[in-house]
Amino acid sequence: MNAPSPTDMEMTLRTIAMPADANPAGDIFGGWVMSQMDLAAFVRANELAGGRTVTVAVHEIVFKKPVKIGDTLCVYTSIKKVGRTSITLNIEAWTRRHYEHTREKVTEAVFIMVAVDADGNPRPVAEAQQ
């Protein structure tokens, strides 16, 4: 299946799946994919919050297809909701298959990030936008 990339989301991170991140069968560990999604959530939430954010929850992570060694992993984000101190993001991970021109959605999840101050205490997101 050669699906188009999501047009209603922003590509926030792109990286290559390397052999060190794979099991003996050549499939990339789900934890590595999730960490890339977390990095993308961090980047997008920090931009919106104007400062440091931390991950407080991940909901319904769904691994739809494997990521293989050499695949380019593209992580897309969209803002679902902004609360007083929190930012909820939809995250999708897509691959561009190694030596192919196909794209496939491989993983999706909802991440909740909280804006924090220098001491790690929650702070209003609006403070960063002033």
Rank of each mutant, 00 (worst) to 15 (best):
M1L: 10
N2T: 04
P4N: 07
P4G: 06
P6H: 07
T7Q: 14
T7E: 14
D8V: 08
D8Y: 08
D8G: 09
E10R: 04
M11F: 00
L13Y: 10
L13A: 10
R14W: 00
T15I: 07
I16M: 14
P19N: 04
A20G: 02
N23G: 13
N23A: 15
P24K: 13
P24N: 09
P24C: 09
G26T: 10
G26L: 11
I28C: 09
G30Y: 11
G30V: 12
G30D: 05
G30R: 08
G31W: 08
V33P: 01
M34N: 08
S35F: 01
M37P: 03
D38S: 13
D38K: 05
D38R: 02
L39H: 03
L39K: 07
L39R: 06
A40S: 06
A41N: 05
F42W: 13
V43I: 15
A45I: 11
A45W: 04
A45G: 10
N46I: 03
N46V: 02
N46S: 15
E47Y: 01
E47F: 04
L48W: 00
G50W: 09
G50D: 05
T53K: 01
T55V: 11
V56F: 02
V56R: 03
A57Q: 09
A57D: 14
A57T: 13
H59P: 00
H59Q: 13
E60M: 09
V62T: 15
F63Q: 04
F63S: 03
K64D: 09
K64P: 01
V67M: 11
K68W: 14
K68Y: 13
I69T: 05
I69F: 04
G70D: 02
D71W: 08
D71Q: 05
D71T: 01
T72F: 13
C74E: 10
C74D: 09
Y76C: 04
T77F: 02
S78P: 02
I79F: 00
K80W: 01
K80H: 05
R84F: 07
T85P: 00
I87M: 02
T88F: 00
T88L: 00
L89T: 01
E92T: 05
E92H: 07
A93M: 05
R97I: 11
R97T: 13
R97E: 15
H101A: 14
T102P: 02
R103F: 12
K105W: 03
V106H: 07
V106Y: 01
T107D: 02
T107P: 02
E108Y: 03
E108P: 00
A109V: 07
F111W: 06
I112R: 05
I112T: 15
M113G: 01
M113Y: 02
M113P: 01
M113L: 06
V114Q: 01
V116A: 03
D117E: 10
D117I: 14
D117K: 12
A118T: 15
N121R: 14
P122Y: 06
P122D: 07
R123S: 11
A126T: 09
E127P: 00
A128Y: 01
A128I: 04
Q129N: 11
Q130K: 14
Q130C: 08
